[in-house]
Amino acid sequence: MTTPVIELRDVSRRYDEGPPALRDVSLTVHAGEAVAVLGPSGSGKSTMLNLIAGLDRPDTGTVTVAGKRVDGLGEAASARYRRAEIGMVFQFFNLLDDLTVTDNIVLPAQLAGMARGEASRRAAELLDTLGITRHARAYPGRLSGGERQRVAVARALMNRPALLLADEPTGALDTASGEDVSALLTELNADGQTIVVVTHDLALARSCTRRTIQLVDGRIAGDVVAEPEPTR
């Protein structure tokens, strides 16, 4: 068995005096898996995502991603870790409106110190793969929601991350654009990309992942792997 991409061991996190956001959570995700983390507001989904991304630290337990202990990293090391190992896609895109599509996509490579020529080639490859080459010189504000989310996915994949984290990636999209993004995530996973989708949308989870983690009150209440559909 290969080294897990994600390994949480007995992780707990509490904020202020309220109940724990996560309670003794253990979870393993291997390379090539597509996993949906489901649950209502307050179930611990966002806390889990932030811990995996190194944006927060657990009170107890360990968080290991791509072989690296994330829970003990300092601020600068956490930033380097995210640039190298994590791609993040958000509900509201988080694109910079004063930069072109290409400049938005290249930004993570610039921050990581990638050579300009290599970054340009990688951006062109992603623009082509994601079907948005015609928008390379456009500004995000001129694009549809689905197109902007494709740009956000391209940016997230720029540094070839071990893990793609998608936080409610279709939450701000209409039905057709949401289905388009769901299909894109399915294609990326089929090509080997490890993906974790954090969502409350069961339909999204079913369409682009095979494994679903159900969180309730900070605990894992279910961990189900769907059987593959029979070939015809």
Rank of each mutant, 00 (worst) to 15 (best):
G74I: 10
E7G: 06
V153C: 08
A112P: 14
L157A: 15
P40T: 05
M48A: 09
G67K: 02
G178S: 11
G42Y: 06
A77W: 07
E33T: 02
L188G: 03
D98F: 10
V70T: 02
E33V: 06
A119Y: 00
P58I: 05
T212G: 01
L107P: 08
G117F: 07
L111N: 09
P19F: 12
R82A: 10
A190N: 11
D71Y: 01
K45S: 02
R142Q: 13
L51W: 05
E168D: 09
E168A: 05
A66E: 04
N50W: 10
Y139I: 08
T102E: 07
R122M: 07
D217T: 06
M114V: 14
A84M: 11
D56Y: 12
A66M: 05
V106G: 03
I6L: 07
V11T: 07
E125S: 01
G44D: 05
R23F: 12
G54Q: 12
A205D: 00
L215N: 01
L8T: 08
V37T: 01
V198F: 15
N104C: 12
A112N: 04
A172V: 04
R137V: 14
R211C: 02
D128Q: 15
L173A: 11
L99A: 09
L126Q: 12
D16C: 08
A119R: 06
L55A: 13
M88K: 13
T209L: 06
M1F: 04
L51G: 01
R137L: 09
D223F: 12
K45D: 05
E118W: 07
R137A: 15
D71L: 01
G67L: 00
L184N: 14
A112Y: 12
T186H: 04
A53S: 14
I52R: 06
R13E: 05
A152R: 12
G74V: 09
M158G: 01
S120P: 06
D10P: 00
R148C: 14
R137Y: 08
T3H: 02
I195Q: 02
M48G: 09
L55K: 01
Q193T: 09
T62Y: 09
D16S: 15
A162M: 02
R210G: 15
G117V: 14
P19Q: 06
R219P: 09
G218L: 03
G72P: 10
H200Y: 05
T231Y: 14
S177R: 03
Q149T: 03
E179P: 00
L99C: 13
G61T: 03
M114Q: 12
P230I: 13
L157T: 02
V151D: 08
R80K: 13
S46Q: 08
R160K: 15
G44K: 10
G61Y: 11
L127A: 08
L184P: 01
H200M: 04
V216E: 11
G117A: 15
A76C: 00
L22Y: 09
Q91N: 15
R206P: 13
D103M: 07
L157K: 10
E179G: 15
A115Y: 03
A156R: 08
A36Q: 02
R14G: 13
V151W: 05
D180Q: 10
G67W: 10
G74T: 09
E17Y: 08
V70A: 11
G72M: 10
I195S: 02
K45Y: 01
Y139F: 15
S144M: 00
P20C: 12
I195M: 00
R23D: 11
